[in-house]
């Protein structure tokens, strides 16, 4: 009765309004088991929905609104001046480019390291495996600023690796220190991302079919052939998922950049817009572009690849 199709907009609108009211009615005052079930789902999702609405959706809408405002401090009128600046000024194009190559490069490098690490942890019987898992997971709880400090400890002027190389080559440590450079930043990003990628890939590895691998081995396949043709197709969803996640993580990194300020990326530029003259329009426009880009990228990644949804 309610789903009845009609060409005229009036009754169709009324029919859908009736249907919405009927759903609300069934949630508030359930009659059938199906209604009660629906009420449970609504009740279970409600706290999360409230948090997302108050702390996520509304503030983001306010940011979108100010980014097209005609005045600096109030949301009035409509102006695309901030977006015009973003898309025409070569300065912002370079900032966007920096963000993309840094996040993309470190995502590839981190997942490239995480595959053998997860492979060794899940496939081999290593002594002290639990300890190794704990050690690899520990940096997940370290914020970006601490990751940056770790890189200073390794590659800075006083750094361990720097001084080892200085001793071996006889050159001055200050010439070899790369912590405060683009490559140092690259390593710092990997420090944050390798543990996360490993976590995802270990989950994928735990579902791999061992029987097929053993069959391949007993038919004479080398370990590499087994990995390439049997294991790899099974872990591919995990690899795609890990790439999507680490790329998103890479774009969002900010603390690391506050300590090692050598490459100007999108997030750092947003904070600079606010710090110098509280340019909330441009900061808002940058936040909007960022949000739309990551949303589209993630939706695309999940829709058109076999990636597993995960953190």
């Amino acid at each position: 009765m309610l789903g009845e199709y009609t060409d005229r907009p009036g009754p169709r609108l009324r029919a859908s309004a009736v249907r919405v009211v009927a759903v609300f009615g069934s949630v508030l005052n359930p009659v059938t088991e199906r209604d009660r079930r629906r009420r449970r789902v609504v009740a279970l999702c409600a706290p999360f929905a409230i948090l997302v609405a108050i702390a996520g959706a509304y503030p983001l809408l306010e940011v979108v609104r100010i980014s097209v405002s005609a005045e600096q401090y109030r949301s009035v009128g409509f102006s695309l001046a901030a977006y015009e600046t973003l898309f025409t000024d070569p300065y912002y194009r370079e900032v966007a480019f920096n963000s993309l190559w840094l996040a993309g490069g470190t995502a590839l490098a981190s997942v490239g390291v995480a595959v053998p690490v997860a492979h060794a942890l899940e496939k081999y019987d290593l002594p002290g495996e639990d300890v190794l898992v704990t050690l690899v997971s520990f940096p997940i709880s370290l914020p970006g600023i601490v990751a940056a400090f770790m890189i200073l400890v390794l590659l800075g002027n006083n750094g361990l690796v720097t001084n080892l190389f200085a001793m071996l080559t006889g050159r001055a440590a200050t010439d070899l220190a790369i912590a405060v450079s683009a490559s140092g930043l690259f390593v710092a990003f990997c420090y944050s991302m390798i543990p996360r990628a490993t976590l995802i890939l270990r989950g994928t590895y735990s579902e791999v079919d061992h029987a097929a691998e053993e069959a391949a081995q007993s038919l004479g396949a080398t370990p590499w052939q087994t990995f390439r043709h049997v294991t790899f197709p099974q872990i591919r969803p995990g690899i795609t998922g890990a790439l999507i996640l680490t790329f998103r993580t890479g774009l969002a990194i900010f603390g690391t950049l506050i300590v090692i300020q050598t490459v100007l990326v999108w997030t750092l530029q947003i904070s600079r817009e606010l710090a110098t003259g509280y340019n909330i329009q441009v900061a808002g426009a940058m936040a909007t572009v960022y949000f739309l880009f990551t949303f589209a990228f993630t939706a695309f990644g999940l829709r058109y690849t076999d990636a597993e949804v995960g953190l």
């Binding site: 940011v63 100010i66 774009l251 997030t267 904070s271 909330i280 949804v309």
Partner: peptide, 23 residues
């Protein structure tokens, strides 16, 4: 619902800007 609940919605910097503006 499952995708939204397990994917980080926005990074901290963006949320910070949004909070400054909204509240």
């Amino acid at each position: 619902v499952s995708a939204i609940s397990v994917l980080p919605l926005v990074p901290g910097v963006i949320l910070g800007v949004a909070f400054l503006r909204a509240y």
